[in-house]
């Protein structure tokens, strides 16, 4: 018993030094040297709040006001009446923003990703349909050729890994930066 207790104490301290300090610090060192700024967080992976500015592509709605430093889920349940009101408001806002540039845009044509909050609150990607609808607005408001906007959308689209894993999406952070250049 006493012997086991001493062994336990040595083991816990030793594993804390090896697994809790040596391992993460070595990995940090290697990652910092090898991957540079990426290891400090690539800002392109995080959505930026565009505050409904019509000149920009709007990322998905966020429960956290796009704050990456205090994340939480919306916890909107499947049978929640509050959720229904939320979606209705989101639909109305989306159509108000994009309707005049997309005649005939009705609720059933609004892509689901445009009115549901993401998991992280900072999901930078939107669906191709969502981007296509917003592209007309952005082109009109900025007064640039729709073809040019489509081209930028194309460039900001992240495909599936090996054409298989994940879902393709348009990265709004990269896209908005490209628009401002």
């Amino acid at each position: 018993m006493k012997r086991n207790l001493i062994t336990s104490a040595i083991a816990v301290v030793m594993f804390t030094l090896v697994l809790g300090l040596a391992y993460p610090l070595v990995v940090t060192g290697v990652a910092q040297v090898t991957f540079g700024d990426n290891a400090d967080g690539n800002p392109d992976l995080i959505a930026k709040d565009t505050k409904a500015d019509p000149r920009y592509f709007q990322p998905r709605p966020s429960q956290t006001e796009y704050d990456p430093e205090a994340t939480f889920f919306s916890n909107r349940g499947p049978n929640s009446s509050a959720a229904r009101s939320f979606y209705r408001d989101q639909l109305a806002a989306y159509i108000a923003l994009n309707g005049q540039y997309n005649p005939g845009l009705t609720n059933d044509k609004v892509p689901a990703d445009a009115v549901t909050t993401s998991g992280s609150g900072v999901d930078p990607h939107i669906s191709a349909q969502n981007a296509a609808i917003q592209a007309r607005r952005v082109a009109a408001v900025r007064g640039i050729a729709p073809e040019r906007v489509d081209e930028l959308v194309e460039q900001a689209t992240d495909g599936r890994f090996l054409g298989l894993f994940g879902e393709p999406g348009v990265n709004t952070t990269k896209l908005n930066e490209a628009l401002d250049r």
């Binding site: 229904r84 999901d123 994940g166």
Partner: peptide
């Protein structure tokens, strides 16, 4: 609310 498609609430588009 009038939505169609898949349930994307709380999900990340890239997955």
């Amino acid at each position: 609310a009038g939505l169609t498609g898949a349930n994307l609430e709380g999900k990340e588009l890239r997955f």
